[in-house]
Design a binder for these strands. Structure first.
Length: 738
DNA sequence: CGTGCCAGAGTTTTT
DNA sequence: CTCTGGCACG
């Protein structure tokens, strides 16, 4: 307790009744929570068994457990886990109460998408209007709020799609049910329903969890709120920790009013604010504060630090995204020369698509880096295939898994054969796998298909006896199903990399087994299902970290780069349209800035190619919101169009001359010329007489000198120094190349 | 069954 | 631009 400041101590010592800890970024939140738990156990004599601590990520849960164990000793019998893991546990134990078998499978978003598409098809609905992604978003939103298919059906709606959506939702639910599967949304929703429907069960958990803690409370959605509220019951020994300024998941159902209304929801709640920041230097903190101050309806709170000085926030403008990446790479190299480790530095961007240019620039500069996010490791085809086999071993009713691998590797069981078995299974109300054992089901199949199916069935059954360890099962399935042999036979580079991935996965399994030699297949599958890339983020490797701003929440780095500070990208153009959208982006900006401990770089590219389109950019409004006192390079802000143009005309300052004024290297130039030529061909040579290349300098009698930004064969977009951006007909406009 | 083409989508995504 | 998944074709 000596290590805590007065506010932190006050929070840690308050153990009875509702408590809201408003914990600003870097204010020692985790330390406060872990000390609170330790205090409960050691000083108040609370049995760890009676404590529940929920987080959003496995990583946060693991960190909290480590730190608690460091204080009170290892092997604490306490629930410290994610919302989903906690609900999963409840559901496994009482699955029968809601008509599920306890060996149910958890479907990830890819699985969900497949089911959704199948449902739309089965119902004969238009796959364009009922795109799987859209249908799923509707279903997920329902589940976040606890609206079942029946609820949805009976709700009045203006939408002409409503009836169709209701049908899809219903069929989707039926499909999951008969596959003995739940999706992520189900885990929370069904656990809540279970507790609400079974007072005895609820009472059991209430008696057990006499002390409840919730991390990142600002990001809870309505169902998660209901879950903790239920468990807290009358006693209300609930301690929530959060920061309304860091609510960045509203788009995913998080309800910021949960934290804003905590005192109303839990009468008599005590509120403790942790406002002293121990992470960032004064300039970074000041800058972050000045940005977030532009949001209204906040809990009043302002971070402060007793540390003086430190580097100012650096703002830099670059020509385009490639220059932006080169600039960042150069700074990283130079900081590495000054004694920073690569692992101390992170590049945090708004969208995953931005990672590419940085990867290229870092490779060229021979800087080690690690990209988090993007395509998930467990989403790779070969991994999903093997996992599907393993899922079948665990839950033979999983028709989705079976359909995925029934002909993987190719074994002569195509669409037709599958359809026949499916028809039989449907008619006899069995799962596909059960139908395999049924002679009649296979009767109409070709001899080859029949034999393949029987072999596959045997392979799966062989490992379903509970006598095999996971790695044994894994190896066995890889061989017995013919999966690995088929890949080896392919003898291609691609197959080679798949084999490598499969071997890599084997080491993952071995690691889990090393940690817990008695781990069962079901337990393993559970862990795998609920894991994310960010959980694997490993600081031991000395590499620069690349990830989205969202993924960075909860982390800190001595040096942080935030590229892409442009309106439309950050804040994202899409969010800007929604009410409150920019506020959430601003909070995201605040989250990003407060990740930095010693140095923070905000970077902007003056033009950017996104989805194959090159556009002029406008600096992010967040840049203008930063108090100039904390900024180096503030003079560059607000000097947009003309400033950029003059620079383009000739070198100005030391740094930029080398890179920035040569917007395109030779290869780019050639590529563009080829593209331009092609486009002319497409136009049938109509506009063939005039051609422009991006970057051409041109003169117009009225508008003066300008620079070609875009040319599509007919329309040329020119940025004029005096007149601004103009779109002109290439074959008509009196343009002269200079 | 494998290949190759095409259309469509591409913000963020703790589980 | 780049990836993905579906689909047509041989």
């Amino acid at each position: 307790m000596d290590k805590l400041n007065p506010m932190q101590r006050e929070a840690a010592l308050h153990t009875e009744g509702p408590l809201l800890i408003l914990a600003g970024a870097g204010s020692g939140k985790t330390g406060t929570m872990t000390h609170r738990i330790a205090h409960l156990i050691k000083d108040e004599g609370v049995d760890p068994y009676n404590i529940l601590a929920v987080t959003f990520t496995n990583k946060a849960a693991a960190e909290m457990r480590d730190r608690v164990e460091a204080l009170v000793g290892a092997g604490v019998r306490m629930w410290i886990m994610t919302f989903h893991a906690a609900c999963l546990r409840v559901l496994r134990r009482h699955a029968d109460l809601i008509g599920y078998r306890s060996d149910f499978t958890v479907y990830d978003p890819t699985d969900q998408k497949v089911v959704a598409r199948n449902c739309v098809k089965q119902l004969g609905l238009d796959e364009k209007r009922y795109a799987p992604a859209y249908v799923l978003s509707v279903i997920s939103k329902c589940k976040e709020k606890g609206r079942t298919a029946s609820d949805f059906e009976s709700e009045p709606s203006e939408s002409i799609l409503h009836e169709g959506l209701a049908a899809v939702y219903r069929l989707y639910e039926d499909t999951l049910k008969s596959n003995n599967a739940m999706d992520f949304g189900d885990l929370i929703m069904r656990a809540v329903f279970l507790l609400e429907q079974s007072p005895e069960t609820l009472e059991e958990y209430r008696r057990r969890f006499r002390y409840i803690m919730v991390d990142e409370y600002q990001d809870t959605d309505p169902m998660q709120y209901r879950f903790v509220k239920l468990l807290a019951g009358e006693r209300g020994n609930i301690c929530v920790v959060g920061d309304d300024d860091q609510c960045i998941y509203e788009w995913r159902g998080a309800d910021i009013t949960n934290i804003l209304n905590f005192e109303k929801d839990f009468p008599g709640a005590k509120v403790v604010k942790l406002e002293q920041n121990y992470r960032s230097n004064a300039n970074i903190l000041g800058g972050a504060n000045s940005v977030i101050a532009h949001n209204s309806s906040r809990k009043s709170k302002e971070l402060w630090t007793d540390r003086e000085g430190g580097a100012k926030i650096v703002f830099e403008e670059t020509w385009d995204e490639r220059d932006e990446a080169r600039y960042v790479a150069r700074e990283i190299a130079s900081l590495a020369g000054d004694g920073y480790n690569y692992r101390d530095m992170a590049i945090l961007y708004r969208t995953n698509a931005q990672s590419r240019t940085f990867e290229e620039a870092l490779s060229v500069a021979q800087i080690p880096y690690r990209v988090l996010g993007g395509v998930r490791y467990y989403d790779r085809k070969e991994i999903k295939d093997l996992l599907s086999y393993m899922r079948l071993v665990q839950n033979p009713s999983d028709d989705l898994a079976l359909a995925r691998v029934i002909n993987e590797p190719k074994r002569g069981v195509g669409e037709k054969s599958l359809a026949k078995v499916r028809a039989y299974a449907d008619a006899s109300e069995q799962s596909l796998f059960e139908a395999f054992a049924d002679e009649d089901a296979l009767m109409s199949l070709s001899a080859r298909a029949r034999e393949s199916i029987i072999n596959m069935e045997l392979a799966i059954k062989r490992y379903a006896d509970g006598d095999h360890g996971i790695s044994e099962i894994y190896d066995g399935l890889m061989i017995d199903t013919g999966y690995l042999p088929a890949l080896e036979a392919q003898n291609t580079v691609e197959a080679e990399s798949r084999i490598e991935n499969l071997l890599e996965f084997k080491t993952v399994i071995l690691e889990y087994e090393a940690e817990d030699p008695n781990i069962t297949l079901a337990e393993f599958m559970e862990k795998i299902a609920l894991i994310s890339d960010i959980d694997n983020h490993d600081r031991s490797e000395n590499a620069v970290t690349l990830m989205t701003l969202h993924s960075a929440k909860g982390l800190e780095f001595p040096v942080v780069f935030m590229p892409g500070m442009e309106d439309g990208l950050f804040p994202s153009g899409r969010t800007a349209e929604k009410p409150g959208g920019v506020d959430e982006e601003r909070r995201l900006c605040y989250v990003g800035m407060t990740r930095a401990m010693e140095r923070l770089y905000l970077v902007r590219a003056k033009q950017r190619t996104l989805y194959g389109r090159r556009d002029q950019t406008v600096e992010s409004r967040f840049l203008r919101e930063i108090d100039e006192d904390f900024l180096e390079g503030a003079d560059k802000i607000g000097s947009d169009t003309t400033g950029y143009f003059h620079e383009a005309m000739g070198p100005q300052d030391g740094y930029s001359s080398a890179e920035i004024f040569r917007p395109f290297d030779r290869i780019d130039q050639i590529r563009r010329e080829v593209a331009t030529a092609h486009r002319r061909d497409d136009e049938g040579g109509r506009a063939g007489s005039v051609s422009f290349t991006i970057g051409d300098e041109v003169r117009h009698p009225k508008f003066g000198d300008g620079l070609v930004l875009e040319f599509d064969g007919r329309v040329v977009t020119v940025m004029f120094g005096a007149a601004g951006k103009k779109r002109l007909a290439a074959d008509l406009a009196p343009l002269e190349k200079i």
